[in-house]
Amino acid sequence: MVAEHLSENDIQQYVSDPSACGSQVARHIETCETCQVKAETYRVLFFGIRHQPQPVFDFNLSDLVLSKLVQPKPKFSWEIMVVYLCSFIGIMTILFLCFLLREYFTSLFTGSSTLVFYLFVVIAFTSLVFQGIEIYRNYQKKINTLNIS
């Protein structure tokens, strides 16, 4: 235990965050009346500060700022253009391959058992459902973030 009284700094730290103080500080405060009084004074002080009224502007800040903003024109982005182009080429390639291999696809499931076929369908469906839920949740979260009313 700390024999001498705690410093003002230790007491402030103890009151604002007891877990950040050493056990010696805590033990001293438990047994020392003088330091307890000081700690209590800081507790009251911090309580009083925390309960100060929150200042608010007496004007609508977002209206004021938005009226001064120059509406930026959505800029043409080459990066997005490249992504669109690659996606288009990718989809067309897949469709072309499907067309070329159409006969192979029709015979793909004829050789396997019904059980394997249904297993394949169930797995595909389940993963689609999970992805759908995830996409919907993300969408809801973004909409909530943008909800300013």
């Binding site: 700022v65 938005l66 903003l69 509406q71 943008l146 300013i148």
Partner: peptide, 8 residues
């Protein structure tokens, strides 16, 4: 270009 997001 969405200034409403800036309002948020």
């Amino acid at each position: 270009g969405d200034t409403n997001a800036f309002a948020v």
